[in-house]
């Protein structure tokens, strides 16, 4: 029973120029946990998911989805 949750934390974090360390400190989790969340090894609790979206000031569905996010085009990956 795979109830995978997909997320775009890494993308948002890179776009905002926030380090894993900074995000970890803001959320009150360990540094490595950000990596676990970004790779989908762990799913956040609902409360933590809402706090992540509040931190980025976007609706929760912008970051989390039950379906894989579409691959981003060249427009969004410009450095």
């Amino acid at each position: 029973m795979n109830e995978a949750i997909y997320n775009r934390i890494a993308m948002l974090r890179a776009e905002r120029g926030i380090s894993r360390r900074e995000l970890a400190d803001a959320l009150g989790v360990h540094y490595q946990t950000i990596g676990y969340l970004e790779r989908g090894e762990y799913s956040p609790s609902l409360h933590l998911a809402l706090r992540i979206s509040a931190h980025f000031e976007v609706p929760v569905e912008v970051i989390f989805s039950t379906d894989p996010f579409p691959r981003l085009g060249a427009a969004a990956t410009r450095a």
């Binding site: 009150g28 989790v29 676990y36």
Partner: peptide
């Protein structure tokens, strides 16, 4: 004033909460 991190799994899926 720091949070504790709680991890657990359920039905093979792993969760984390602060």
């Amino acid at each position: 004033s720091t949070r504790s991190e709680v991890r657990w799994s359920r039905d093979g899926q792993r969760f984390v909460h602060a």
